[in-house]
């Protein structure tokens, strides 16, 4: 009779086996690559929450001071009678009403960043993947999600607070379900793509805040984007379905300051 074997010891032994040397050609390829690769410029520790709060407080204070100064200057030209504040000055057009509710539908105007001239070419090879870039050790918090249409392509932009997550963009096959509930989901458009953002979430677990409060189901009626709908935000993985009018090539890339992950769908 043999003594019972410890499974943990077996797992340790199993994982201890295998290659441990990186071949020289990989170092050589890295060296060749970095010879013509620059380093990203970093202006400050933007993801430090204390610094972020200081910056936010300073920005609010600056806006308040500016508003007071402008208000005083306008007030010096004549007394304000019954006005709620500087914005109610006579020079303001009466049709301009500040909206207090976020628009449920995105604007059909090219409200999302137009081409910057540094985008990669469109590709029809799927999946498209991007490797995460982050400056510290927490999931990236989604700051904004925008869709827009431009001459020749529709664009989706995810904005983050100091890095971009892993992206995988691939064709999705029905049935479409929500993650993690598994409940069915109807997605308009054909084909439908699945967007997986690993290392990102809308919820800031540390502060309990959710900076992005906008829509999670877009039906903008653009040339390509029929429906763009979230189907999961779980365990730092953010999932979306993208239904389009016709299958065409796409591209994905990142932009800096602020950190954005961009997906374009060619018309």
């Amino acid at each position: 009779m043999t003594a019972p074997r410890d499974p943990n010891r077996l797992i340790d032994a199993f994982l201890s086996e295998g290659q441990t040397d990186l071949p020289d050609h990989v170092y050589d390829e890295v060296r060749t690559e970095i010879e013509h690769t620059g380093q990203r410029t970093v202006f400050g520790p933007w993801r430090n929450s204390f610094v972020n709060r200081l910056v936010a407080v300073a920005a609010v204070a600056a806006v308040v001071v500016l508003a007071v100064v402008i208000g005083l200057q306008l007030g010096a030209g004549g007394p304000l009678v019954g006005g709620p504040g500087p914005s109610a000055s006579a020079s303001a057009p009466p049709s301009v009403e500040p909206s207090t509710e976020p628009s449920p539908q995105p604007s059909a105007e090219p409200s999302v960043e137009p081409s910057t001239g540094v985008e990669p070419p469109f590709t029809c090879d799927l999946p498209i993947t991007l490797v995460a870039v982050g400056s510290d050790f927490h999931p990236l918090i989604t700051q904004d999600i925008r869709v827009g249409t431009h001459d020749g392509y529709d664009r989706i932009v995810f904005e983050y607070d100091g890095g971009t997550p892993n992206l995988e963009l691939d064709l999705a096959q029905p049935p479409y379900v929500q993650n993690p509930s598994g409940l069915p989901l109807t997605v308009a458009g054909s084909p439908v793509y699945r967007i997986t953002l690993t290392g990102a979430t809308k919820y800031d677990m540390e502060s309990g805040e959710q900076p992005y409060q906008g829509p999670t189901d877009f039906e903008p009626g653009f040339t390509q984007i029929v429906q763009f709908v979230e189907f999961g935000d779980f365990e730092a993985t953010h999932n979306w379905y993208l239904g389009v009018n016709k299958g065409d090539c796409l591209r994905a890339f990142t932009l800096l300051d602020p950190s954005r992950l961009v997906i374009d769908i060619r018309h």
């Binding site: 690559e33 620059g38 990203r40 870039v133 400056s135």
Partner: peptide, 17 residues
């Protein structure tokens, strides 16, 4: 994967505080 990560590390090194 190691090659991609080393190149990313070079590009993003200034963000390592």
């Amino acid at each position: 994967a190691v090659q991609a990560s080393l190149i990313t590390a070079w590009r993003e090194l200034r963000s390592l505080r």
